[in-house]
Design a protein around this nucleic acid. Structure first.
Ligand code: MN
Ligand code: MN
Ligand code: ZN
Ligand code: ZN
Lengths: 140, 140
DNA sequence: ATAGGTAATGCAACAGAAGTGCATTATTTT
DNA sequence: AAAATAATGCACTTCTGTTGCATTACCTAT
């Protein structure tokens, strides 16, 4: 049992169950964003519903953020340290590679301010670039 | 039969069948982006598959553009005049209102250039703002 | 005009993802 | 230990998108 993982969950008021620790650890080792199906395939023994609700809890408690990469499959990635998923400060660009099918975070690329017409209020914003990633680009 | 509608389809090398003209007309009258289900509900008499393939053809021939507004339901909206769905010139911001559930185009808000790390190639980009639209904002 | 070929349509069925209800099991509190 | 609360697992459902195939409409060449 990794104590750091437990601390992370407790800091976000999530009880550190066995499954949750495993999911957190898995997300830490993977640098690409993961889908529910990805988790399902990795954890053969666990039920999809449990994984689904684990991700839901993690997203609600701001341990992970949900990513809509345009594929129709929701992806999840760990939030940065001290992230509160705030529109002005935390939201960043995501990149989806159409060759290797991986979706990655660009935490350095914050989403630029969007000037909306009068009366419109922005709560959330999503900016996804689709194309070819650096790894796939090399092997062309 | 509206001749303008026929001209529009022919200009994009799409044969102007009855259904296609009706769909095009419907999209012209609606200012919000429409989903396949929206079309299905509006055209009681037509088959879902026909509408699906109509939208697919329209998208391929650049009559409409597909919009991923983060709801998990693909929306479609008519392209601007002379649009070629080019990443630098044509792609624009979309707004999804979480109250009235409408998704609208902001053709004036072109998507800003995104500076990607070395080796990454951008083919496509999607920027969707979620929040409260001007109409719903008034009635709060 | 007719026959043959091509394109569009309609019906049925399927796949994948997301989500819910409920019973069971585990954990915490009293 | 008993009661209360939370997490898990199973079954089932809904929704969206998609494909195969037979039928129908349309166009073209003779
Ligand atoms: Mn991210
Ligand atoms: Mn648009
Ligand atoms: Zn790649
Ligand atoms: Zn609204």
């Amino acid at each position: 049992m990794n104590l750091d993982l437990e601390k992370t969950l407790e800091k976000h008021n999530v009880k550190p169950t066995a499954m949750r620790l495993l999911v957190l650890q898995f997300l830490l080792t993977e640098k690409a964003a993961m889908s529910l199906t990805d988790l399902e395939n990795h954890f053969d023994r666990s039920d999809r519903t449990t994984l689904f609700r684990t991700l839901k809890t993690f997203a609600e408690k701001e341990i992970v953020h949900k990513i809509d990469d345009g594929t129709g499959v929701t992806k999840y990635a760990l939030c940065e340290e001290d992230c509160h998923c705030e529109i002005e400060t935390d939201l960043h660009v995501h990149f989806h590679c159409k060759i290797c099918n991986e979706t990655i975070c660009f935490p350095e690329n914050k989403i630029p301010y969007i000037n909306l017409p009068d009366g419109f209020i922005a709560d959330d914003v999503s900016l996804t670039v689709t194309g070819i990633c650096n790894k796939c680009n090399k092997s062309l």
